[in-house]
Design a protein around this nucleic acid. Structure first.
Length: 452
RNA sequence: GGAGAGAUGGCCGAGUGGUCGAAGGCGCUCCCCUGCUAAGGGAGUAUAGGCUCAAAAAGCUUAUCGAGGGUUCGAAUCCCUCUCUCUCCGCCA
C-alpha cells in the first residue's frame, strides 16, 4: 500500500511512476474521493467535538446538582445527525481504502524503464552452459526413463500440474532442501523457521496477494455459523437460509500459502521490532500452492509450473536505510546456491513493466536449461520497501525511539522443483544417467549418479 | 466437544456510566543532588488521523482500554455477537 500522504502531496509523481509500470491510475477518481473524505471528516469531527463538549457540560452540571433539561433539549437532534455523518464517512473511507489496496508499489529509481519482460536488463552471468556431444533431453524424458518421475500417476492422484517422484529423485529433492537450508542458516545468517501452510486473509492482505489476486490462491472453505444463520435457524424464517448465512464468511477462510514469504513476513504484522534486532533474517522450507489461473497452455509439460512445489524462502525485515544493500546481499545468497550446484545462471533486473505488485525492485535469477536452450526463472528477489509493512503495520523503533515502518524483502533461495529440473538437464549423461553435483553427494550418502 | 476465567499503555496493574488517554508501580529518557557505588529529588515517557499553515514550529480537534455492533446527552465501565488466551474434563497425531 502506498502512503496516502504521498498521494495527497505529490499525486502527479505517483501517477507518473505508476504509469511507468503500466498501471493507469485515475487521478480524478482519487481527487473526488479525497475531497469527499475531507468534507465528511471535517463535518463529522465537528459534530463529535460538539457532542463531547455538551456531554462534559452535562456531567459538570449534574455534579453541581443543576438542571440539565435545557442542555439536553439543545442537542436533541445531534445524535441522528452524527450517526448519519459517521456512516457516510465510514463509507467513503472504505472506498478510499479499497482503492489504495489495489494500487501496486512504485518502482525504485534504479529500476530500468520498460514495456515488457524483453526490457529486463541482464546484470551479470555466472558459469558457462555446457555443450553436449549428444542431444540433450528434457527433464521429463530423463526422469521418466530413469523410472523416477511419473506424471500419469500424479494426474491420477490429483490432476494436471502435479508431480510424483520416487527413489533417488525424491531423495535428491529432499537433499536440495537440506543443502539450501544449511547454507542459509550456517553461512548466510538466517534463522530457520517452521511455519503454517494455511494462513488467514489478513496475512495475505499484508503481503499483497489479497484482495487483488484471490484467483491465484487455493482457498479452504470453513463451515461457520454467522449471526444471521443462528437467527434464521431459530425459526421465524422457514424459507431458504440466506446465502450469506448458509455459506461461510470469506474472512474466516484459510488459504494455502503461495510462498513462505506470506507467513515469514507476516510475523512482523502489528509488531514493533527493536532496532537492535534488525535485520531480522528468516528462512523456511515449505510447499507452495498456486492455482495458476490464467496460465493455461504455458509450461504444460514437466514440472516447471506446478500447483504444488517446494521452495526454500529467505526473508529479511530491514532498516529502511539498509534495505537496498540487503537486496543485493539477499540476491547473492540465492546465487550462492546455484554456484554450489555448479548451475549456470544470469541475474536480471526486472524492468518497470515486469515488477510484481508489491515490489519496488526485483532481481530474477534465471538458470540455464539445456533442453529449452534458455535461461528460466528459478528465483525472484524483491525489496518491497514499506509497501507491505504499511499494509501490515510492521514497524521498528527507530534511532529516535519512534515507531517507523520496516522494509521487507523476500527471495527464493531457491525454488526446489526448478532446481531439480536444472540438475536433471545440466548433469545428464549420454547413457541416460544423471550425475549428482558434488555439493549434494554428501546429502545422498555419497551417491554420485542416478541410474535406471 | 463440555465447564469456567480472562483480554487495559513497553511491562505489571487499578478503574462498574461523566472532566479517563486512563491512578499507582516497574522500566526508559533528561535534569538535580551525592567525590565512586548504593540511595534520594524533579520533569518527561502511546499510536494513527484531520483541520489551520507556503513550510516548520505551534495550535485546535477526532479516534483507539481484544474486534464489531447496541443502549445513552455521555461507555474502559452496561447489553449483544465474535476472536484469542488460560484452567479443568473429554477426544486425538
Amino acid at each position: 500500500m502506498l502512503d496516502i500522504q504521498l498521494l495527497r502531496t505529490d499525486l502527479a509523481h505517483v501517477a507518473r511512476r505508476l504509469a511507468a509500470r503500466g498501471y493507469a491510475f485515475s487521478v480524478t477518481e482519487f481527487n473526488a474521493l479525497e475531497a469527499e473524505r475531507k468534507m465528511l471528516q471535517t463535518h463529522t469531527q465537528d459534530l463529535q467535538a460538539r457532542r463531547n463538549a455538551v456531554s462534559r457540560q452535562i456531567g459538570n452540571a449534574k455534579s453541581k446538582g443543576e438542571d440539565v433539561d435545557v442542555i439536553l433539549a439543545e442537542v436533541a437532534n445531534l445524535g441522528g445527525e452524527l450517526r448519519q455523518a459517521e456512516a457516510q464517512l465510514a463509507q467513503t473511507q472504505t472506498a478510499l481504502q479499497q482503492m489504495l489496496l489495489q494500487i501496486p508499489n512504485l518502482p525504485h529509481s534504479s529500476v530500468p524503464e520498460g514495456n515488457s519482460e524483453t526490457d529486463n536488463r541482464e546484470v551479470r552471468r555466472w558459469g558457462t552452459p555446457r555443450s553436449f556431444n549428444f542431444t540433450a533431453r528434457d527433464h521429463v524424458s530423463i526422469g521418466e526413463s530413469l523410472g523416477l518421475l511419473d506424471f500419469p500417476t500424479a494426474t491420477k492422484l490429483s490432476g494436471s500440474r502435479f508431480s510424483f517422484m520416487t527413489g533417488g529423485l525424491a531423495r535428491l529433492h529432499r537433499a536440495l532442501a537440506q543443502l539450501m537450508l544449511d547454507a542459509h542458516t550456517r553461512e548466510h545468517g538466517y534463522t530457520e523457521a517452521y511455519v503454517p501452510y494455511l494462513v488467514n486473509a489478513e496475512s495475505l492482505r499484508g503481503t499483497g496477494q489479497l484482495p487483488k489476486f484471490k484467483e491465484d490462491l487455493f482457498e479452504i472453505p470453513r463451515k461457520k455459523m454467522t449471526p444471521t444463520d443462528v437467527h434464521s435457524q431459530n425459526g421465524t424464517d422457514q424459507g431458504a437460509l440466506s446465502t450469506e448465512g448458509q455459506y461461510p464468511l470469506e474472512d474466516d477462510n484459510l488459504y494455502l500459502i503461495p510462498t513462505a514469504e506470506v507467513p515469514l513476513t507476516n510475523i512482523a504484522r502489528d509488531q514493533i521490532i527493536a532496532l537492535e534486532s534488525l535485520p531480522v533474517k528468516l528462512t523456511a522450507h515449505t510447499p507452495c500452492f498456486r492455482s495458476e489461473a490464467g496460465s493455461y497452455g504455458r509450461d504444460t509439460r514437466g514440472m516447471i509450473r506446478q500447483h504444488q512445489f517446494d521452495k526454500v524462502e529467505v526473508v529479511q525485515l530491514a532498516h529502511p536505510q539498509q534495505s537496498y544493500e540487503a537486496l543485493e546481499e539477499l540476491t547473492g545468497h540465492a546465487e550462492k546456491i546455484l554456484q554450489k550446484l555448479e548451475l549456470p545462471y544470469r541475474v536480471m533486473a526486472l524492468c518497470t513493466a515486469d515488477l510484481g505488485f508489491s515490489a519496488a525492485k526485483t532481481y530474477d535469477i534465471e538458470v540455464w536449461l539445456p533442453a529449452q536452450n534458455a535461461y528460466r526463472e528459478i528465483s525472484s528477489c524483491s525489496n518491497c520497501e514499506a509497501f507491505q509493512a504499511r499494509r501490515m503495520q510492521a514497524r521498528f523503533r527507530n534511532e529516535k525511539g519512534k515507531p517507523e515502518l520496516l522494509h521487507t524483502l523476500n527471495g527464493s533461495g531457491l525454488a526446489i522443483g526448478r532446481t531439480l529440473v536444472a540438475i536433471l538437464e545440466n548433469f545428464q549423461n549420454a547413457d541416460g544417467s544423471v550425475s549428482i553435483p558434488k555439493a549434494l553427494q554428501h546429502y545422498m550418502d555419497g551417491l554420485d549418479r542416478l541410474t535406471a
